[in-house]
Design a protein around this nucleic acid. Structure first.
Length: 567
RNA sequence: CGGGGUGUGGCGAAGUUGGCUAUCGCGCAUGGUUUGGGACCAUGAGGCCCUGGGUUCAAGUCCCAGCACCCCGACCA
């Protein structure tokens, strides 16, 4: 392709709305253009990258026996009402067609694929099967951010596996995990795999594939000693047990007007923060649950939701706090709570003697509170968010560090939730009808493009890994001298003939402009031809990822390029 | 949905208590001089100053309403 005729040139100025590096470079380089918030057009350069990733994914999945298909973006609302997600998924864009049919734009495709499964899968002989599509999704996010990092419309690889039973699912799942590793390897990007929560997808056992990056929206915890990695929502740590009194002291009430928050309270009482107790009231579906958390930790709502097995979980309103406890936020405690309020305490609260807690009385706190003696011993569970620097629960030695990560892929074991909701059954070899056991697997392809740029760039521009670069070679001609241009044109034609994906910068611009643009666009190999290089019947050769250029004789060029691309 | 901010040629910006023909840089076009890290000179094209209403002799500028976009938070398969 001749760059002089190429659609979508570079821009010198950074668009003011761009904050993330990937956003700046992709927009300045002419890869994408923003149409509206969260909606992007892929210009030829960006579309080339997209196409390459799409192809790699499809090829690697096919190697694992995955079959490709394509499902619509517009779904009848009735399908989403079957699973109950019509009212539950708040990023769902609902609309009415001109014929008056209620429709949705698909944010994901469990509903349609399960519908296909119930229509086409009859017996255990049809199993296992994994279906994949690379299809656009629409999620009406309240806020789209960071260029391609979080868009409303995005291309996603989404695969769905169907098995007879849990053991089959494990095999299908492991195959997909292996395929994902192969995909990211081939693309040339380092991923970290972490245990994650399955969120509103339902099901269990999920893993995230992410790229460590400061602009990532996900927080993950990594052990510095073993290979334990988990999303912060899910990460398990050993709490540091603190030394306790031997003897119980009498419980006492202490005034503390206007003292809200554990730090202030601990200072006021002259006790360490870890002997304070936050008592929070949550609305868990229809029930109110009181949660006790040691003052130096925070509640992981994900862990709590999973422990309680509820769908909706929210902190209750201040009014509700007053109604249940008779006091205001800041003075809630486990003593004298109404008997019908379920109390769940974090494991870090266990075995404590003489701790502090709110008194359920305005401006009052209890000290020297003890389980059993002062209030019924509650149920204990791990419901706290691990703190940075906590000891890893897996190895018991390492410390946990927090990193930001861009979530690029996510795999779930769904189990039978969708097949039960939608009655997707098969007949097993015992003649009985059983629900299909499902898994689902997704990679955000458009986000992956941003992730690659975030993890592979310098201060001049993008450094594309060879496998996904929009072109593999950029040929730059410097100087207008007719004989030079003629030689450059001829070289360009030759390379095309060889099947090299070459972008030919034949513009009538100064060297600085062209070389800077080449750095920005980030094509892996840059070849400069000029009167100077032609004196020696050679070209200047520079890999984008390397600092120094070298001289390659023209007669060796095609061989060298082949070697470079194969490496 | 809460808080904050911004809308002025393609891009980035300036425009004072309302006042003259709406300004500057980049980019673009034409001609010329240049040509290895964002060259220079000359000439030129390109505007519903986000939209609608109002105040005024006069609105890019003030007032009201709306829309769009960005940032922080909440939310997030």
């Amino acid at each position: 392709m001749r760059y002089s005729k190429f659609f979508g040139k570079t821009q010198k100025e950074t668009p003011k709305e761009a904050v993330a590096v990937s956003h700046k470079y992709l927009q300045r380089g002419g890869f994408v253009h923003q149409l509206a918030a969260g909606l992007y057009e892929f210009l030829p350069l960006g579309f080339n990258v997209l196409t390459k990733i799409d192809k790699i994914i499809k090829e690697e999945l096919a190697k694992k026996g995955v079959q490709h298909l394509l499902m619509p973006l517009v779904h009848p609302a009735s399908l989403w009402k079957e699973t109950g997600r019509y009212d539950k998924v708040d990023v769902l864009l609902k609309f009415t067609s001109a014929r008056g049919t209620d429709c949705v734009l698909a944010p994901t495709h469990e509903e349609t694929v399960t519908d296909l499964a119930r229509k086409y899968i009859r017996t255990y002989k049809d199993l296992p099967v994994t279906l994949n599509q690379n299809q656009w999704k629409y999620r009406d996010e309240i806020r789209a951010t960071g260029g391609l990092l979080r868009t409303r419309e995005f291309l996603m690889q989404d695969a769905y596996s169907f098995d007879r039973d849990k053991a089959g699912l494990d095999i299908s799942f492991d195959k997909m995990v292996a395929a994902y590793h192969a995909i990211f390897d081939r693309i040339g990007i380092d991923v970290v795999v972490v245990k994650a929560d399955s969120g509103t997808m339902g099901g269990s056992d999920s893993q995230e594939f992410g790229v460590i990056s400061d602009v990532g929206e996900d927080k993950i915890m990594i052990c510095d000693s073993c290979d334990y990695k988990a999303n912060i929502e899910k990460a398990e740590s050993k709490f540091e047990a603190q030394e306790q009194d031997k003897e119980m002291k009498p419980m006492a009430k202490v005034a503390g007007e206007g003292i809200i928050g554990v730090e202030a309270l601990a200072a006021h009482l002259g006790v360490p923060v870890h002997s304070t107790t936050m008592t929070l009231l949550f609305q868990a579906d229809k029930d109110v649950v009181a949660v006790m958390m040691r003052g130096d930790y925070h509640v992981s709502e994900t862990k709590l939701r999973n422990y309680l097995g509820c769908k909706n979980l929210n902190l209750v309103s201040p009014d509700m706090v007053k109604k249940v406890t008779g006091t205001e936020v800041g003075y809630v405690g486990p003593v004298n709570l109404p008997a019908n309020v379920r109390v769940v305490a974090d494991l870090s609260c266990k075995d404590r003697i003489n701790f502090e807690a709110g008194a359920n009385e305005l401006h009052s706190h209890n000290v020297n509170v003890n389980f059993d003696r002062d209030f019924p011993t509650p149920e204990f569970a791990d419901i706290r968010e691990a703190n940075e620097g906590d000891t890893c629960a897996a190895c018991g030695k390492g410390k946990l560090a927090v990193k930001n990560s861009i979530e690029m892929g996510h795999v779930f074991k769904l189990g039978t939730c969708y097949s039960e909701w939608m009655k997707a059954n098969y007949v097993d070899n015992d003649g009985k009808s059983k629900p299909l056991v499902m898994g689902c697997y997704g990679i955000g392809i458009t986000r992956l493009i941003a992730g690659i740029v975030e993890s592979s760039h310098d201060d001049k521009g993008i450094i594309w890994p060879k496998a996904v670069a929009p072109f593999t070679v950029e040929l730059v001609v410097l100087g207008k001298d007719e004989s030079v241009v003629k030689r450059a044109d001829a070289l360009y034609e030759e390379l095309l003939e060889e099947g090299v994906e070459v972008l030919y910068d034949d513009r009538d611009d100064s060297a600085g402009v062209k070389l800077n643009d080449a750095d920005l666009i980030g094509i892996p190999l840059r070849i400069v031809i000029s009167s100077r290089t032609l004196e020696k019947e050679s070209v200047e050769w520079k890999a984008r990822s390397e600092k120094d250029a070298k001289i390659v004789e023209l007669k060796d060029l095609k061989k060298e390029i082949a070697k470079f691309l194969a490496a």
